[in-house]
């Protein structure tokens, strides 16, 4: 855990209700793919957990969807504003678990942490296939960024307005990608539907209402085959092996 106040460099909408915020992080150490930050929102007692979408030297990118008052406040925050952040929270993805070919699956705003994951896997010389699911074409995020990194990206939309019509599970059946390890982040029903379909080993990034994000309150516990675990502390990423789904 590291606490500091980075300044907003930019904060722009990239899809309906979805914003990309870049923060100047100065000398702060880079953050792991799949780890998260807790953002303070004025007037709110609980901080908001957001995934690291991309952490580069001196810069942190968050990708967030407006769903309530906290994220609505973030969306109107102007460049130059400083935010109080807790960073370096959670375990992050295990990029070394993939030997050759990785499959990344994201649903909606759950795609956010896949950006840095894809970058790290590509930097380590892995082949990367990405399946992204959205409701409709206008909601697509990160497709170009991931393709620029050299990943093969397939999109599924529920209304068929882009890519494969249907869910990421439909895309998985159609594309039949080759992979030795997978990484999933998205809504719970999507992850539960994928769980029995994905044969290799892999990992899932989970979500819960959080009291602290730092392992102090036991507010975010999930049952695993190894006993109760805190999503914010031992997670948010859990391997297939330990999830009793």
């Amino acid at each position: 855990m590291n606490k500091y106040n980075p300044t907003i460099l930019s904060n722009r909408t990239v899809a309906p209700k979805v914003y990309r915020m870049e923060l100047a992080t100065g000398e702060a150490p880079p953050l792991r793919a799949g780890s998260f930050v807790e953002v303070e929102v004025p007037g709110k007692f609980l901080r908001r957990p957001l995934s690291v979408s991309l952490s580069e030297s001196g810069r942190l990118t968050l990708l967030y969807k407006v769903v309530g008052e906290g994220t609505a406040w973030l969306a109107q925050a102007q460049p130059g504003t400083s935010l109080s952040l807790l960073t370096g929270l959670g375990n992050g993805f295990d990029t070394e678990a993939c030997r050759e070919r990785a499959l990344l699956v994201g649903g909606g705003i759950g795609a956010a942490p896949l950006h840095q994951l894809c970058r790290d896997l590509r930097a380590a010389g892995r082949q990367v296939t990405v399946l992204l699911g959205f409701n409709t074409a206008s909601e697509r995020i990160l497709c170009e960024e991931l393709e620029t990194l050299g990943a093969t990206v397939y999109v599924a939309t529920l209304d068929g307005s882009a890519g494969i019509r249907g869910l990421v599970t439909d895309a998985l059946r159609q594309v039949q990608p080759a992979f030795d390890y997978y990484y999933v982040c998205g809504p719970m029903p999507m992850m539960r539907a994928l769980f029995p379909l994905l044969q290799a080993d892999g990992e899932f990034s989970l979500e819960a209402r959080m009291g602290c994000g730092t392992g102090l309150c036991f507010g975010c516990t999930v049952q695993t085959t190894e006993g109760p675990r805190r999503i914010c502390h031992e997670g948010p990423v859990f391997t297939k092996k330990v999830l009793p789904w």
């Binding site: 007692f45 609980l46 209402r209 036991f218 507010g219 975010c220």
Partner: peptide, 20 residues
């Protein structure tokens, strides 16, 4: 004890509710 099912945390003005 495992405790209660989640959500265990709810926000409110001036604090939070917990049902850990």
């Amino acid at each position: 004890r495992f405790g209660n099912p989640t959500p265990r945390i709810a926000e409110c003005a001036g604090g939070l509710l917990n049902a850990v």
